[in-house]
Structure formats: C-alpha cells, structure tokens
Lab assay of single mutants.
Amino acid sequence: DLSGKLIIKAQLGEDIRRIPIHNEDITYDELVLMMQRVFRGKLLSNDEVTIKYKDEDGDLITIFDSSDLSFAIQCSRILKLTLFVNG
C-alpha cells in the first residue's frame, strides 16, 4: 500500500535515488542526514548542500528549512529533489 507513503526521488549529478519515506514529519536536518547516507561518498557532512524540489510548474524551489520541506511534501506524494553541492 503506497498511499500512505511518501516517495523521495533525489538527484545528485547524474545519480538518482528513490527512497520511500514512512514518516512524513521529517525535519530538514533529518532530510540532510538521509541524503548524506543515500549519497555516501558523494555528499560529505561538511559539504554545503542546497536542496531544491520541483513544484507543479516544474520550477526548482529551494528548501531552506523544515517548514519549506513540509510544504513541499503537502504538494506531492512524490517529492523530486535535486541536490547541489557548493563544496
């Protein structure tokens, strides 16, 4: 049953990962930690990372904090994230 699940599709460069999320109350910090685990070796804990999501118009919107993240989650059951490393 995928109805209650949130799917995160995260892209870093050419690498795209699909991550099912069971807890929608994820904070921004938890998201960043999850991305560091998912992209281990490509995304380091001291990297400056910018996370953006695609909205319904196809625009890339920056996620700065947990309220941005929860808004993005409300918009779509499949959250398409693009990561930019400013390392």
Score class of each variant (00 low, 15 high):
residue 1 D to N: 12
residue 1 D to M: 06
residue 1 D to Y: 08
residue 2 L to P: 05
residue 2 L to F: 14
residue 2 L to T: 11
residue 2 L to A: 02
residue 2 L to E: 03
residue 2 L to W: 05
residue 2 L to V: 02
residue 3 S to W: 03
residue 3 S to F: 06
residue 3 S to H: 08
residue 3 S to C: 06
residue 3 S to T: 08
residue 3 S to M: 09
residue 4 G to V: 09
residue 5 K to L: 05
residue 5 K to R: 06
residue 5 K to F: 09
residue 5 K to S: 10
residue 5 K to P: 12
residue 5 K to C: 06
residue 5 K to V: 07
residue 5 K to Q: 05
residue 6 L to Q: 03
residue 6 L to F: 10
residue 6 L to C: 07
residue 6 L to S: 08
residue 6 L to G: 10
residue 6 L to H: 12
residue 8 I to L: 05
residue 8 I to H: 01
residue 8 I to P: 00
residue 8 I to Y: 01
residue 9 K to D: 15
residue 9 K to S: 15
residue 9 K to E: 15
residue 9 K to Y: 15
residue 10 A to P: 00
residue 10 A to G: 02
residue 11 Q to L: 03
residue 11 Q to W: 02
residue 11 Q to C: 05
residue 11 Q to V: 07
residue 11 Q to H: 07
residue 12 L to P: 00
residue 12 L to S: 01
residue 12 L to N: 01
residue 12 L to H: 03
residue 12 L to I: 05
residue 12 L to T: 00
residue 13 G to L: 03
residue 13 G to A: 05
residue 13 G to N: 09
residue 14 E to L: 10
residue 14 E to A: 14
residue 14 E to W: 06
residue 14 E to D: 09
residue 14 E to R: 11
residue 14 E to M: 08
residue 14 E to Y: 11
residue 14 E to G: 08
residue 15 D to P: 00
residue 15 D to L: 14
residue 15 D to H: 15
residue 15 D to C: 15
residue 15 D to Y: 13
residue 15 D to G: 02
residue 16 I to M: 07
residue 16 I to C: 15
residue 16 I to R: 13
residue 17 R to Q: 14
residue 17 R to I: 12
residue 17 R to L: 06
residue 17 R to T: 04
residue 17 R to Y: 08
residue 18 R to K: 13
residue 18 R to S: 15
residue 18 R to F: 15
residue 18 R to N: 15
residue 19 I to S: 00
residue 19 I to F: 04
residue 19 I to M: 07
residue 20 P to G: 09
residue 20 P to C: 14
residue 20 P to V: 14
residue 20 P to F: 08
residue 20 P to R: 12
residue 20 P to N: 11
residue 21 I to W: 08
residue 21 I to S: 05
residue 21 I to V: 11
residue 21 I to P: 02
residue 21 I to H: 08
residue 22 H to D: 11
residue 22 H to Q: 11
residue 22 H to E: 10
residue 22 H to G: 11
residue 22 H to V: 13
residue 22 H to P: 13
residue 23 N to K: 12
residue 23 N to A: 09
residue 23 N to T: 13
residue 23 N to H: 10
residue 23 N to S: 10
residue 24 E to R: 05
residue 24 E to P: 08
residue 24 E to K: 12
residue 24 E to M: 12
residue 24 E to C: 12
residue 24 E to D: 08
residue 24 E to L: 12
residue 24 E to V: 12
residue 25 D to V: 08
residue 25 D to A: 07
residue 25 D to F: 09
residue 26 I to N: 01
residue 26 I to D: 00
residue 26 I to S: 00
residue 26 I to R: 00
residue 27 T to W: 00
residue 27 T to Y: 01
residue 28 Y to D: 01
residue 28 Y to W: 03
residue 28 Y to H: 03
residue 28 Y to P: 01
residue 29 D to F: 05
residue 29 D to T: 10
residue 29 D to P: 09
residue 29 D to C: 07
residue 30 E to C: 05
residue 30 E to Y: 05
residue 30 E to S: 06
residue 30 E to D: 11
residue 30 E to P: 00
residue 31 L to H: 00
residue 31 L to M: 09
residue 31 L to W: 03
residue 31 L to V: 03
residue 32 V to K: 12
residue 32 V to S: 04
residue 32 V to T: 07
residue 32 V to N: 05
residue 33 L to S: 10
residue 33 L to A: 08
residue 33 L to Y: 08
residue 33 L to P: 03
residue 33 L to I: 10
residue 34 M to Y: 06
residue 34 M to H: 07
residue 34 M to R: 07
residue 34 M to E: 12
residue 34 M to C: 11
residue 34 M to S: 13
residue 34 M to L: 08
residue 35 M to D: 00
residue 35 M to H: 01
residue 35 M to P: 00
residue 35 M to E: 00
residue 35 M to W: 01
residue 35 M to A: 05
residue 36 Q to E: 08
residue 37 R to L: 08
residue 37 R to C: 08
residue 37 R to P: 01
residue 37 R to D: 15
residue 37 R to I: 12
residue 38 V to I: 10
residue 38 V to M: 09
residue 38 V to F: 05
residue 38 V to L: 13
residue 38 V to S: 11
residue 38 V to Q: 14
residue 39 F to N: 01
residue 39 F to Y: 06
residue 39 F to W: 06
residue 39 F to M: 01
residue 39 F to P: 01
residue 39 F to H: 01
residue 39 F to T: 01
residue 40 R to V: 09
residue 40 R to I: 13
residue 40 R to G: 12
residue 40 R to P: 14
residue 41 G to Q: 05
residue 41 G to C: 04
residue 41 G to D: 13
residue 41 G to N: 06
residue 41 G to K: 05
residue 41 G to M: 09
residue 42 K to V: 10
residue 42 K to I: 07
residue 42 K to L: 07
residue 42 K to D: 05
residue 43 L to Q: 02
residue 43 L to N: 03
residue 43 L to I: 11
residue 43 L to D: 03
residue 43 L to S: 02
residue 43 L to C: 04
residue 43 L to V: 07
residue 44 L to D: 14
residue 44 L to T: 09
residue 44 L to C: 07
residue 44 L to M: 07
residue 44 L to Y: 08
residue 44 L to F: 08
residue 44 L to K: 13
residue 44 L to Q: 10
residue 45 S to I: 08
residue 45 S to H: 09
residue 45 S to T: 06
residue 45 S to K: 14
residue 46 N to G: 14
residue 46 N to A: 04
residue 46 N to M: 10
residue 47 D to L: 15
residue 47 D to V: 02
residue 50 T to I: 05
residue 50 T to M: 03
residue 51 I to R: 00
residue 51 I to E: 00
residue 51 I to A: 02
residue 51 I to N: 02
residue 51 I to P: 00
residue 51 I to H: 02
residue 51 I to C: 03
residue 52 K to T: 12
residue 52 K to Q: 10
residue 52 K to D: 02
residue 52 K to A: 12
residue 53 Y to V: 04
residue 53 Y to P: 00
residue 53 Y to C: 03
residue 53 Y to D: 00
residue 53 Y to I: 03
residue 53 Y to Q: 04
residue 53 Y to H: 04
residue 53 Y to E: 02
residue 54 K to P: 11
residue 54 K to E: 14
residue 54 K to C: 13
residue 55 D to M: 06
residue 55 D to K: 15
residue 55 D to G: 15
residue 56 E to T: 15
residue 56 E to W: 05
residue 56 E to V: 10
residue 56 E to N: 13
residue 57 D to Q: 14
residue 57 D to H: 15
residue 57 D to Y: 14
residue 57 D to N: 15
residue 57 D to A: 13
residue 58 G to A: 04
residue 58 G to H: 03
residue 58 G to I: 00
residue 58 G to Y: 01
residue 58 G to M: 04
residue 59 D to K: 15
residue 59 D to Q: 15
residue 59 D to H: 15
residue 59 D to I: 11
residue 59 D to Y: 13
residue 59 D to P: 05
residue 60 L to H: 07
residue 60 L to T: 13
residue 60 L to P: 05
residue 60 L to G: 04
residue 60 L to I: 09
residue 60 L to W: 14
residue 61 I to W: 11
residue 62 T to S: 10
residue 62 T to Q: 13
residue 62 T to H: 05
residue 62 T to N: 13
residue 63 I to Q: 00
residue 63 I to F: 02
residue 63 I to D: 00
residue 63 I to E: 01
residue 63 I to V: 05
residue 63 I to K: 02
residue 63 I to C: 03
residue 64 F to Q: 09
residue 64 F to W: 10
residue 64 F to D: 06
residue 64 F to S: 14
residue 64 F to R: 15
residue 64 F to K: 15
residue 65 D to P: 02
residue 65 D to R: 03
residue 65 D to S: 12
residue 66 S to K: 03
residue 66 S to H: 05
residue 66 S to E: 03
residue 66 S to P: 00
residue 66 S to N: 10
residue 66 S to Y: 02
residue 67 S to C: 07
residue 67 S to V: 13
residue 67 S to E: 08
residue 67 S to Q: 08
residue 68 D to G: 12
residue 69 L to E: 02
residue 69 L to S: 01
residue 69 L to I: 06
residue 69 L to D: 00
residue 69 L to V: 10
residue 70 S to I: 07
residue 70 S to E: 05
residue 70 S to C: 06
residue 70 S to N: 11
residue 70 S to D: 12
residue 70 S to H: 14
residue 71 F to I: 15
residue 71 F to D: 15
residue 71 F to K: 15
residue 71 F to M: 14
residue 71 F to V: 15
residue 71 F to A: 15
residue 71 F to L: 14
residue 72 A to Y: 06
residue 72 A to G: 02
residue 72 A to N: 01
residue 73 I to G: 00
residue 73 I to N: 01
residue 73 I to V: 09
residue 73 I to C: 07
residue 74 Q to S: 07
residue 74 Q to G: 06
residue 74 Q to W: 01
residue 74 Q to E: 08
residue 74 Q to Y: 07
residue 74 Q to P: 03
residue 74 Q to I: 02
residue 74 Q to H: 11
residue 74 Q to L: 04
residue 74 Q to M: 05
residue 75 C to D: 06
residue 75 C to W: 03
residue 75 C to K: 15
residue 75 C to L: 11
residue 76 S to N: 12
residue 76 S to C: 09
residue 76 S to F: 03
residue 76 S to W: 05
residue 77 R to C: 06
residue 77 R to G: 12
residue 78 I to Q: 13
residue 78 I to R: 07
residue 78 I to T: 11
residue 78 I to M: 06
residue 78 I to G: 10
residue 79 L to H: 08
residue 79 L to N: 10
residue 79 L to V: 10
residue 79 L to P: 07
residue 79 L to K: 13
residue 79 L to F: 04
residue 80 K to I: 13
residue 80 K to C: 15
residue 80 K to W: 10
residue 81 L to I: 07
residue 81 L to F: 07
residue 81 L to K: 02
residue 81 L to H: 01
residue 81 L to Q: 02
residue 81 L to T: 02
residue 82 T to V: 06
residue 82 T to N: 12
residue 82 T to F: 12
residue 82 T to G: 03
residue 82 T to S: 12
residue 83 L to E: 00
residue 83 L to P: 01
residue 83 L to F: 03
residue 83 L to A: 02
residue 84 F to G: 08
residue 84 F to D: 12
residue 84 F to A: 11
residue 84 F to K: 08
residue 84 F to C: 09
residue 85 V to A: 06
residue 85 V to R: 08
residue 85 V to G: 04
residue 85 V to S: 05
residue 85 V to E: 06
residue 85 V to W: 02
residue 86 N to A: 12
residue 86 N to M: 04
residue 86 N to H: 10
residue 86 N to V: 06
residue 86 N to I: 06
residue 87 G to D: 11
residue 87 G to S: 12
residue 87 G to T: 13
residue 87 G to L: 13
residue 87 G to K: 13
